[in-house]
Amino acid sequence: MPEEITTAPATTAVPAPAPAATGRTAARAFGIGCAVLVAVPLLLVLAFVGWIAVVTKDASDFPRVAPEEMVSRAVDRSREAYDVLGFTRTVRPGVEEIGVSTENTVGSDHCYRGGLTDETVDGAYRVSHSWALDHVPAGQAVPGLRRLRDHLEDTGWDITSYRENVSGDYWALYASRSDGDEHMSFQWYADRDYFAGGTSTPCAVDPGWRPGDDEPAGDELWPPDFGPSAKKNGS
């Protein structure tokens, strides 16, 4: 009769229990935990304070430029786009009816400290120039906008929005640069053959600002006659 061999089941090793924490070890762990709980909020507060310091502006963050010069810069930006669009008409200052008649106006606005405050920076302002033409057909507006989009991209502008034939009668082009401090916008309305453009400058500080001046600098200024550049006229 063959010999019967019985194999004993393998025993599973049971790990030895961890030694109980001594009073000193427990206190050390408790101290580390408290330090972490204190350090994390403190780091968040310091990061928040640093962020506020970076995004909050004051007068020293902007160049000192007279409003007349900023108006000139805004109009020059508009004129550059006007040349690329291929327009040749000259528009006198003013507007009779916004959205209907020709327009050539300037305006200004306050500049703000940023961060979590809506406070303005003393003496700081930005200038905008708005212009518009009536009687602009599709054959002039559409290729002009496409040409201008390419020109702006080639000259360092970021195209933030470009829309063709929205709802069948609206075209729009928006661009910015200098970290969003400078803007340009253009719209063409096919239903009334109306083309509008605009430029806004980065902020500057008016050298003539005095405490108590409530209105933004340049708000009372008028633009010159607006049209193609002298170079364009001579070509």
Rank of each mutant, 00 (worst) to 15 (best):
E69F: 06
R73G: 00
I98G: 10
D150S: 10
I52Y: 07
L173T: 02
P41D: 04
W171D: 03
A20N: 09
S60K: 15
R149Q: 04
A204V: 06
L133E: 02
P228G: 00
E80D: 12
Y162E: 02
H110E: 09
P202V: 13
G31R: 13
I159W: 02
C34W: 12
G115F: 12
E80Q: 13
D191K: 05
G114D: 14
A8R: 11
P67V: 06
V142T: 03
R149D: 01
P202K: 05
K57G: 13
E103P: 02
T90Y: 06
E80H: 05
G33E: 11
A196L: 08
R73W: 01
Y194A: 05
Y189E: 06
V49C: 09
G107P: 04
A29Q: 14
A217M: 11
D213H: 11
Q187P: 01
T25Q: 15
Y112L: 07
L152T: 05
L43D: 06
A132S: 10
A141P: 03
V166G: 02
G33S: 07
P17G: 13
Y112N: 10
P216Y: 14
P67K: 04
L152C: 07
A172L: 08
H135W: 09
P63N: 15
E68V: 11
D219I: 14
V84W: 04
A18K: 15
Y174C: 01
P224N: 15
W51P: 03
D191R: 05
K231Q: 11
D109F: 05
V71Q: 08
T56R: 15
H135V: 09
R163Y: 03
N104P: 06
G33L: 15
G234F: 08
T160K: 06
P223Q: 15
K231I: 04
T7M: 15
Y82H: 06
V55G: 04
E3S: 13
A217I: 03
F195R: 00
G99Y: 08
A20L: 15
E215P: 12
V49L: 14
R79V: 03
G123T: 10
K231W: 08
S229V: 01
P63K: 12
D150V: 08
T90C: 11
C34K: 09
G208L: 11
E97T: 15
L46C: 07
S128T: 02
